[in-house]
Simulated scan of single mutants.
Amino acid sequence: MITLKNDYLTVKINPLGAELTSVMDNESHLEYMWQADQAFWGRHAPILFPIVGRLQDNQYRVDDQSYTMTQHGFARDREFTIIDQTATQVSLELSADDQTRALYPYNFILTLSYELVDHQLKTHATVTNPDETPLYFSFGAHPGFNVPFGGAPADFTDYQVTVSPKQTYQRVPLVGPYSDTQHSVPLDLNQPLLLDHALFDHDAQVLTLNGRETTVMLSTPKDDHGIALTVAAPYLGIWSPYPKQAPFVCLEPWWGLADDVQATGDLTSKVAIHHLAAKQSFAASYQVTYF
């Protein structure tokens, strides 16, 4: 396990999946991250690559050849290599090998970097195409946060998600696990979104951000602690498993979507897919402030 520490926070990252597993306040020992209780959801903050969400029938095609890949891709279950580390920063890398090519017929280099700066953890991802042919992929993050935060005199329904800028966002509905991008619906977030387990009875709330810098804060009026995630991504998912009464919420920056309900199965035409030309790189980042 990798440990990063400064005067305010101690962070733990597992090289398996480059997964953030703990963010703890040094003074109060408050744990912000979901601790992967298998009764609800056995992960903390998986990295989503080379797809976000689910494929129709877990299948897709490239050049008329079919491949099988399960929800959110394989990076979350692969061992990353540490390529650089200091007391407050670490970079990890995953590259293609025979096992990944059996699932995904592309060469790639995926680099994840975490950096602690005061009360903030910055996450930066780079996807590089080392080949002479185009690379098609999606990328996302899936961090889960305790609700309530450790020791808070509050329960799930005392928490709220505040989105800035305050406005009405377009929400992508999910039909089962699939995106229905043709029937986006407005979601008024001029006021905070009050948490309730039934909010997730049709899976995640998926906001269209259009790449505009957005801050999403998870907090409760009953406690001074919270988190604020800032990102400029195409989409952001808000999720907690339903009908389980799970004591956590995920705030998920996405550079991709689950297959559309009208998906053809061709990866090159998949909804929200990224196309990376030969020898080019793609960058994504977000930061979370813990208070």
Rank of each mutant, 00 (worst) to 15 (best):
D131G: 10
G73L: 07
L236D: 00
N107D: 14
Y178P: 07
A272N: 02
F49P: 07
A246N: 05
W34M: 03
G53T: 08
Q89H: 14
T88I: 09
V175M: 04
G17T: 06
N210D: 14
V261G: 01
V216W: 06
S113L: 02
A246Y: 05
K222V: 02
R101M: 11
D57K: 15
V23T: 11
A39D: 05
G17V: 06
V127E: 00
D266E: 14
L229S: 01
A36Y: 11
W34G: 02
T264H: 06
N107E: 12
T220W: 03
D25Q: 04
D196W: 03
F137H: 07
L174H: 14
D180C: 11
V288R: 01
T289Q: 08
E27M: 01
R43E: 02
D158G: 12
D158A: 14
T128V: 14
F137R: 06
T123P: 00
T157V: 10
D131A: 15
H72M: 01
V23E: 01
A102R: 15
Y106V: 06
Q262D: 14
P173E: 02
T81C: 05
P105G: 08
T214I: 04
Q99D: 08
V11P: 07
L121Q: 02
F139L: 15
A272C: 09
A45Q: 03
W254I: 13
A102L: 14
G53A: 04
V261N: 01
F108W: 11
T86I: 11
T162S: 14
K122S: 11
Q287Y: 07
E19R: 08
Y290A: 02
Q71V: 14
N58M: 01
Q245T: 15
I2Y: 06
F74R: 09
H202M: 08
V172P: 06
I82F: 04
L121T: 10
D266W: 07
K12A: 13
A278N: 01
T70E: 10
T208V: 15
Q38V: 12
I83V: 15
Y178I: 05
H275R: 15
Q38R: 15
T181L: 10
T214C: 05
N6P: 04
S95N: 08
E31W: 08
G256V: 11
R101C: 06
V62D: 03
I227A: 04
N26G: 02
I13H: 12
A263G: 10
T214P: 05
G256T: 07
K270H: 11
F74G: 09
V161S: 08
P50C: 05
G151H: 06
Q205Y: 09
D266S: 10
W239I: 06
D37C: 07
K12S: 13
F248T: 09
L30G: 00
G73N: 03
L121R: 08
L9E: 02
P243S: 01
F74I: 11
V185D: 00
D97T: 10
L116E: 00
V127N: 04
D196I: 02
T70I: 10
A125H: 12
S164K: 15
A232R: 05
P134H: 06
C250E: 03
H202V: 13
L276C: 04
F145W: 11
M217I: 13
V23S: 02
F291N: 10
A75C: 04
L20I: 10
Y169R: 09
A204L: 12
K279N: 09
W255L: 03
L229K: 07
N26D: 00
M69A: 05
P15S: 01
Y114G: 12
H274I: 11
V185T: 15
T168R: 09
P177F: 07
